[in-house]
Amino acid sequence: MEKFLQQLINGLTIGGFYALVALGYTMVYGVLKLINFAHGDMFMWGTLVGWALLAALVAPLAGMDLVAILITSVVVMGVIGAVGVTIERVAYRPLRKAGRLSPVISALGAAFVLEALARNATEARVKVYPQNLLENLPSIPLIGGVSLSGLQLLMLITCVLLMVGLYAFVQRTRIGTAMRAVSLDHDVSRLMGINVDQIITLVFFIGPALGGIGGVLVGLYYRSFDFTLGWIFGLKAFIAAILGGIGNIPGAVLGGFVLGIVETMATAYGGAGASAWKDAIAYILLIIILIARPTGILGETVAEKV
């Protein structure tokens, strides 16, 4: 029971990361019906930029870890958001009317470019986050020997706040409603006077910005990373988005947590060989869900409009 609870907490934390990154996939898919393969690498760039900034800020802001992390997060959101906007402008916008295959190639190409840049920026080595950040955050003891570390709590709160904020933005504001309208129909949205290109640009800012912050959290949580992080983590986050029903914001969050928990549990209880197969769990889960429910857990059951 204790083990179970501890694993649940770990799963929730990791699930929160998946969810943050999944949001970017799902929002872009919503407005463009495009799998943004570069998103995972933008997330990884969030980890990378976060690492560089924290390494620079740790000394001048000694003892004020939270301030350093806050500054880092804000800057990373801006930088990665800008990267997202640039990629949309360069690699996706010219292909809006080019059929289904070309944007996929272009997206993969953009991902390769980002990854190669990161490979050379890190000299293909594993990079380690500053060691003693937030070490003195209190742990919160729960039942028995189970405890929620301060870092985990902080991360969960951050994830939940960002998701609730995004949901409120999309549901309650004029621009958010316009975003939903654009994801339903570009032409009709134009007839409403909505500048569709502007909305898409906004989506390509918000999604990568959230992914970038996810990258910083992942860096803080695992303490080290290398340039290949983006592909595997990104793919799993995309799977999380599909699990929940792509294009659907609560779905992405749910899918993220489901994937995080299932993966953690399966590794913890799956016996000796399970950790070697850890990365396959997400894929197997994806296939099972899609066979059982082709539009995801929260996806609409109605058939696509033809």
């Binding site: 004029r174 409603t177 316009a178 939903r180 129909d185 409403m192």
Partner: peptide
């Protein structure tokens, strides 16, 4: 817009 409420549909009409 099928998944927007009537109210939200009208609000989109007043987007400008």
């Amino acid at each position: 817009f099928p998944t927007l409420t009537v109210q939200e549909n009208l609000n989109m009409g007043a987007y400008t």
